[in-house]
């Protein structure tokens, strides 16, 4: 298969070309419609990014502070969701009978948008901050759980046999054999979870009025300020990519080959 060699940097030029093409199209469309032009968005972006950490009271904070709130919510929710997902994934992966019995429920639950849970969660926990966190947990739980269970269930029988011969206790068996063997599947699940959590966080914050990037989108939408909304869209995308890259780097360190 022909792949670009690491030294071949022409793809960067191509990328730049696509970017310019996109901006050109955008500028052309904005000339004939009321969609804000790239320049007006850049101007708004400049204003927001010039003072990212101002604090004008509980309803108006700088974009840096708001991004911080979202990232904090993401890491807290993702950590809890991932731990729960891995734990139950291992339990189900090692118990084929239980896995089969619960699988239909898991499939139904993971098909539900975490935002759909929001009114019910808010009604039961009665705190919008905790609700937003639970939405993130819900979003990050299922992909990790399903992937972990699948990975654990498909570990080579030899590994388990060796562990049994060595008479490892159950905890050592999980830590030394099961988790490393299912590692790639788990990491793939975690990556999907991270993406899902980031996608869920924006509408959750917008609906709940919890400070963060979602709140920013909603507040600017209230003012029908489309340049600000487009700026927020771009920022959310870029932050999402950065998170994904960092996560891939981390995952690279955990990867192994048979």
């Amino acid at each position: 298969m022909a792949t670009a060699s690491p030294k071949d940097n022409r793809w960067m030029l191509l990328s730049l070309f696509f970017l310019l093409l996109f901006l050109g199209f955008w500028a052309l469309i904005s000339l004939n419609t009321k969609i804000p032009s790239p320049l007006s968005v850049a101007k708004v972006a400049g204003e927001f990014l010039a003072h990212p950490f101002y604090d004008n009271g509980p309803n108006d904070k700088g974009i840096g502070i708001l991004t911080g709130y979202s990232l904090l919510r993401l890491s807290a929710g993702f950590t809890v969701g991932a731990l729960l997902g891995i734990f139950w994934g291992v339990v189900l992966g090692l118990n084929p009978m239980l896995f089969k019995a619960l699988n239909p429920f898991i499939q139904i639950l993971r098909a539900i948008s975490p935002i759909a849970w929001m009114p019910l969660l808010l009604y039961s926990v009665r705190d919008s901050g905790v609700t937003a966190l639970l939405v993130v947990i819900m979003a990050s739980l299922w992909p990790t759980l399903a992937n972990t269970a699948f990975g654990v269930a498909h570990i080579k029988k030899d590994y388990i046999n060796v562990a049994n011969i060595l008479q490892l206790n159950p905890i050592a068996k999980v830590m030394k054999v099961v988790l490393p063997a299912a590692g790639p599947a788990i990491v793939a699940g975690l990556k999907i979870s991270m993406g899902a959590a980031w996608v869920a966080i924006v509408p959750a914050e917008a609906l709940l009025g919890s400070l963060g990037l979602g709140y920013f989108v909603w507040n600017e939408w209230n003012n029908l300020s489309l340049p600000s909304v487009i700026f927020a869209i771009l920022l959310i995308g870029i932050v999402g990519v950065v998170i994904d890259l960092l996560f891939s780097k981390l995952a690279g360190k955990l990867a192994y080959t048979d």
Binding site: P58, N59, P119, S128, A206, L207, L208, G209, W218, N219
Partner: peptide, 8 residues
């Protein structure tokens, strides 16, 4: 504190 809507 600003709320996102009446239900909220």
């Amino acid at each position: 504190t600003k709320a996102a809507g009446w239900a909220m």
